[in-house]
Design a protein around this nucleic acid. Structure first.
Length: 429
RNA sequence: CGGGGCGUAGCGCAGCCUGGUAGCGCAUCUGCUUUGGGAGCAGAGGGUCGGGUGUUCGAAUCACCCCGCCCCGACCA
């Protein structure tokens, strides 16, 4: 992709409305634009990241045996009256009336809809366990949206719902999701700490929230250093052992009664990016979601629900990975892997080499963004640092004479000179 | 929803107190020069001053109402 033909509106100055660094950088680096309070458009650059995050989540859900579906964003109020939540949910729920004066709502979550799908289609315990998920826009009419996409009113969420015959099965589903979540976040380069949590309005008695560590996180968190030693992508993990490890947000943390010895206690700041719940028959009972068990009796299914804030994760990633100059994307979610700067597009040699590199990289499937704009070198370096692609390659007249290009790692700032062929080897391999 | 702040060019702001018909920086456009860390010079375009009502000869400026956005609190993936 050539920057001269791309849509990447960058801002030199920080918009006044953005308070936290991820919001500022998302606006400055051309990821999003605000439409109204807590509601955003995703521009090409931001949308690429959103889709990458979404894809990692999707792959891990699929790997865990969940099936992707897509439920409606607009739901009928009747379902919520059946579950009893219509009156409970309060003003956070955006209520809509259609032309026939029928009560509708923009879904803040989908327990009712998915339970309705289940009850109309599943009859036998033999069809269990079942785990359905979707990645869908949701709306919660927050009293005060803030922090950009971190706390928007409209947000993209992965939510899934497990259906099991009994508690033991539900627990297996719950544990499988807990592990899937740890892998999912790890794949994005994030350290996520599962913490026992109140199950809140959704209800139930087994619940963990997932906090990722970032210096600018919204709340202080304390956890056992053992979390740092676990390789979530490689190790065979013992869920019960994991769940037994200490982790708490500052509201729940009591230094006096903390079981972790001080030398093993880590503290940091966390951003909540996921939440899992077991809630038994809270919805299956009122909605009549039952299966026939081995003994011929109708049994309400045991359910759990599991959420990941996909759009919030984009902000959280930036909170975790940035510096003074801008964003530093981890490779798995970077909008492009390599930024190729043509330092002097008016120079035929530079342009020829850039075109050749671009073509060969593209052929090898490398996502490359070429800065071919007629701008000053400093402006290009600053822009490239701001948008935070993991690797930057510079083709300029100076290096061209020596037959080298400069490669810079955005995260570490390390630079090296290498031949164009060596560059291709490095990325096309 | 309670408390506070702010709405003036795409972005950041000044002007408002003390009323006289709008300005600065950046960005944009044109031309020339420049080119390894947000270039220089010259020129140009861009505004119902958030909206409405009122006061006044005259309102960005004063008064009242409304709307939007931001911050603190309560709430939250």
């Amino acid at each position: 992709m050539r920057l001269s033909r791309y849509f990447l509106p960058l801002l030199k100055e920080t918009p006044a409305e953005a308070q936290i660094v991820s919001h500022q950088l998302m606006l400055r680096a051309g990821l999003i634009r605000q439409s109204s309070a807590g509601i955003y458009s995703w521009l090409p650059f931001g949308y690429r990241v959103l889709r990458k995050v979404e894809q990692i989540v999707r792959e891990e859900m699929d790997r865990a045996g969940a099936h992707e579906i897509l439920m409606p964003s607009i739901q009928p109020a009747e379902l919520w009256k059946e579950s009893g939540r219509y009156d409970d949910y309060g003003k956070e729920m955006l209520r809509i009336t259609d032309r026939h004066d029928r009560a509708m709502l923009y879904g803040p979550t989908h327990e009712e809809v998915v339970t309705d799908i289940f009850r109309r289609s599943v009859r036998s315990y033999k069809d269990l366990p079942l785990n359905l998920y979707q990645i869908q826009w949701k709306f919660r009419d927050e009293i005060r949206p803030r922090f950009g996409v971190m706390r928007g009113r409209e947000f993209l969420m992965k939510d899934n719902y497990s259906f099991d015959l009994d508690f033991a099965g539900a627990l297996r589903s719950y544990n499988a999701m807990l592990l899937a979540y740890l892998k999912t976040f790890r794949r994005m380069g994030l350290t996520a700490i599962p913490m026992r949590a109140d199950s809140g309005a959704i209800g139930g008695d087994l619940s963990h929230e997932f906090q990722i560590l970032a210096q600018t996180g919204e709340s202080a968190v304390y956890f056992d250093a053992a979390f740092e030693d676990i390789d979530f992508l490689q190790d065979e993990l013992d869920v019960e052992q994991l769940k037994a490890l200490y982790a708490a947000t500052d509201e729940q943390h009591d230094p006096a009664s903390c079981p972790v010895p001080p030398e093993r206690l880590r503290s940091g700041r966390g951003i909540e990016v996921g939440h899992i719940f077991y809630f038994g028959t809270k919805y299956s009972k009122p909605l009549g979601a039952t299966v026939v068990g081995p003994d011929g009796a109708e049994i309400p299914v045991e359910m759990g629900s599991y959420g990941i804030g996909v759009s919030r994760l984009v902000g959280a990633l930036i909170e975790a990975f940035h510096d003074e100059a801008g964003i530093c994307w981890p490779e798995p979610v970077a909008p492009f892997r390599l930024g190729l700067i043509n330092l002097r597009p008016s120079d035929q040699g530079c342009s020829a080499l850039v075109a050749e590199l671009e073509a060969k990289l593209a052929r090898a499937g490398v996502e490359v963004l070429v800065d071919d704009r007629d701008d000053s070198p400093g402006a290009k370096f600053a822009a490239m640092d701001l948008i935070g692609l993991p690797w930057q390659a510079v083709v300029g007249p100076r290096g061209l004479k020596e037959g080298v290009v400069e490669l810079k790692c955005r995260r570490t700032g390390a630079r090296e000179q290498l031949s164009p062929d060596a560059l291709l080897q490095r990325f096309a391999a």
